[in-house]
């Protein structure tokens, strides 16, 4: 895949990223982030120079194994405890905003 390399980040790009990240931004922030993103990414682009041909990516610093356990019912949080921090709850469920119009 070809990279859209070293392209300057535009205000449209910032809006697109904000939408992907689900973070609302106002116009002043869009302008501020546009400048900062360009400065920061310009610095990050330094890694392009690193010679990584044939090098495997490392996801963790050390060799790890996944921890699995038997699928057994244990004494865990009660429904009441689990719902204590909820924005709204109803009939023992978390209440969420409408997903469809």
């Amino acid at each position: 895949m070809g990279f859209i390399s070293d392209k300057e980040i535009t205000e449209e790009d910032v809006k697109h990223i904000a939408n992907l990240a689900k973070i609302d931004l106002d116009e002043v922030e869009i302008k501020k982030f546009k400048k900062q993103f360009n400065d920061i990414l310009d610095y990050f682009n330094k890694i392009d120079e690193a010679e990584t041909e044939g090098v495997e990516p490392t996801y963790h610093g050390l060799n790890l194994k996944n921890v699995t356990r038997e699928d057994e019912v244990k004494d865990e949080l009660s429904q009441k405890e689990a719902l204590e921090n909820a924005n709204e709850s109803e009939d023992g469920f978390f209440k969420s905003p409408r997903v469809k119009e």
């Binding site: 990279f3 859209i4 992907l20 990240a21 920061i40 990584t52 090098v55 990516p57």
Partner: peptide
Amino acid sequence: RIMLGTYALSTGYYEKYYEKALKVRTL
């Protein structure tokens, strides 16, 4: 940081940023 991370993982940039950074981590 959330937005820059979202960008680094987004289509077209994943290899350029995230995967490349993980290879540098190997080095």
